[in-house]
């Protein structure tokens, strides 16, 4: 299911123009990271994908649905959205109920709800914690519950808003495994992130936004190699990309293995 964004404009009620003519096509099954300075419009853009925000101008299509023509509740069957702060999202008394809520709300039969919930719990390593109240879990695990409750809805498109913010190395690795599994299943994954190393290691395409417009859009390696352009939106290339450049490597390296292989040559 493709996403087709055409000349998208959006202004907040206080007059701030957050998006100034974004055009973007995201193909089914792509893994795409959206990067850019604070206030660049990343979250505003992502919230148009599930209809939480409606364009001031231009159009957003999710498959054959234009987002203005469908309520958020209906769009939720196509686009899952994991909020930056899990506490904006969680409300059930135990993890299993929380994770089952989404698929149940989409009207699936009990067997299917159970199967989807179990799969999401396994993927997020929560299978042992199904009876716990989400608010008795550490913030780390609450984040995983928030992920699980969206993954359980089995939407073809999943949006993550800052998935690794405040997460330690072990949990960043867990979240990376979730992204990889969604990719294997053919889902479209869109992540807003400031974690440029996470972006380099887990996404195939990067869109850099600056002041409500697209600054760069392309394959991860091509985008993250453009240090001077990225600087316009306060993004620095990944540590190892900067290191590769400093060492004078011809090709752009984005992860450890590429660096070590390039050094052997």
């Amino acid at each position: 299911m493709n996403i087709e964004i055409k000349s998208l404009h959006f202004a907040y009620p206080d007059g701030t123009e957050a998006l100034k003519g974004i055009s973007l096509t995201i193909a089914s099954g792509e893994q795409i990271a959206i990067v850019g300075q604070n206030g660049a419009g990343k979250t505003t853009l992502a919230r148009h994908l599930n209809g939480l925000l409606k364009p001031s101008g231009g159009t957003v299509f999710v498959g054959d649905w234009e987002t203005t023509q469908h309520p958020v509740a209906k769009l939720a069957a196509r686009v899952g959205y994991v909020f930056q702060n899990p506490d904006e999202q969680l409300f059930s008394r135990d993890v299993l109920t929380e994770v089952s809520f989404g698929p149940r709300n989409l009207g699936y039969a009990k067997e299917k709800v159970d199967a989807l919930a179990q799969r999401a719990l396994a993927l997020t390593e929560l299978s042992e914690k199904t009876e716990v109240n989400p608010y008795d879990l550490s913030p780390t695990w609450r984040k995983m519950v928030a992920l699980a409750s969206i993954i359980a809805m089995d939407t073809p498109i999943v949006v993550f808003d800052e998935p690794t913010t405040g997460q330690d190395a072990a949990n960043v690795a867990r979240i990376a495994r979730v992204v990889a599994e969604l990719k294997r299943e053919g889902k479209t994954v869109i992540a807003i992130t400031h974690d440029i190393d996470f972006c380099a290691e887990n996404f195939e395409r990067v869109v850099a936004l600056s002041r409500g417009q697209i600054l760069l859009d392309g394959a991860t390696r091509d985008v993250l190699g453009q240090e001077a352009v990225l600087a316009q939106t306060y993004v620095e290339p990944p540590q190892l990309t900067r290191l590769g450049k400093r060492l004078g490597l011809k090709e752009t390296v984005v992860n450890q293995e590429e660096l070590l292989q390039a050094l052997k040559k």
Partner: peptide
């Protein structure tokens, strides 16, 4: 964690 939500240059 004062920079957790900041862009990389802002964090620095």
């Amino acid at each position: 964690e004062p920079t957790s939500q900041m862009d990389p240059v802002g964090a620095k």
